[in-house]
Amino acid sequence: DEFHFHWNGRDIRVRGDSEELRRLIEAIKRGELSEEEIERAIEILER
């Protein structure tokens, strides 16, 4: 699976399928994380 979302003017695409990944992306979409937490998560996910 590939998750695709927009954040902070960026087009983010992440491959993978796990419950943890889904929860993280939902939290990002709901605005539950700080900008710094989101940046760090995206860096890890894009590897």
Rank of each mutant, 00 (worst) to 15 (best):
S34E: 08
I28M: 06
R40A: 09
R13E: 09
G31D: 06
I42H: 02
R40N: 10
R15C: 02
A27Y: 07
K29V: 10
L21P: 04
D17I: 08
E35L: 09
R10S: 04
A27S: 10
E19N: 09
S34Q: 13
R30D: 07
V14P: 03
E20L: 08
S34T: 14
R30Q: 13
D11Q: 14
E26D: 13
R13S: 12
I42F: 05
W7F: 10
R40I: 09
D17G: 11
R40C: 01
D11N: 09
L33H: 05
R23C: 11
I38P: 00
L21N: 15
E2K: 02
K29H: 13
E39M: 13
E46S: 07
R40T: 08
H6F: 03
N8S: 00
R22F: 09
I28A: 04
E36R: 13
R13Q: 10
R10E: 06
R40H: 13
I42K: 02
N8P: 01
E36T: 15
I44C: 05
R15Y: 05
E35M: 12
E26H: 13
K29G: 13
L24T: 05
G9R: 00
R15S: 13
R47W: 02
H4I: 13
E26R: 10
F5V: 00
E2S: 04
D11E: 15
H6A: 01
E43H: 10
R23L: 15
L33I: 12
W7D: 02
E32I: 11
R13H: 15
R23Y: 11
R10W: 00
E26F: 02
E32K: 08
A27T: 14
S34H: 09
I38T: 14
D11I: 15
R47F: 03
L45C: 01
H4C: 06
G16H: 07
G16V: 15
R10T: 06
E37P: 01
W7V: 09
W7C: 06
E39I: 09
R10L: 07
D11R: 11
E35P: 15
I44S: 12
E2L: 02
R40P: 03
L24K: 01
E20G: 09
R15K: 15
I38R: 03
R47K: 12
L33Y: 08
R30V: 08
S18M: 07
R30G: 13
F3N: 03
W7G: 01
E36P: 14
R47S: 14
K29W: 08
A41K: 11
R30I: 08
G16N: 07
D17H: 10
G31R: 08
R13T: 14
E43G: 12
R22D: 05
I12L: 03
E39Y: 12
H6P: 00
D1V: 05
F5P: 05
R23M: 14
E36S: 14
D11C: 07
I25P: 00
S34C: 07
N8Y: 01
E39V: 12
D1A: 05
I38W: 05
R47I: 13
L33S: 04
E19V: 10
I38V: 14
E39N: 14
H6Y: 02
I42A: 03
N8L: 05
L45W: 06
L45Q: 03
A41D: 04
H4T: 05
V14C: 01
F5H: 00
E19S: 10
K29R: 11
E43T: 09
E36Q: 14
N8Q: 12
L33A: 04
E26G: 11
I44A: 14
I25Y: 06
R22W: 09
E43Q: 14
D1Q: 05
E37W: 07
A41Q: 13
W7A: 04
E39R: 09
W7T: 03
R30M: 12
R10D: 03
E20F: 07
R23E: 09
F5C: 02
W7P: 00
E32A: 12
S18N: 12
W7E: 03
I12M: 03
K29M: 14
I12F: 08
E19R: 06
E43R: 07
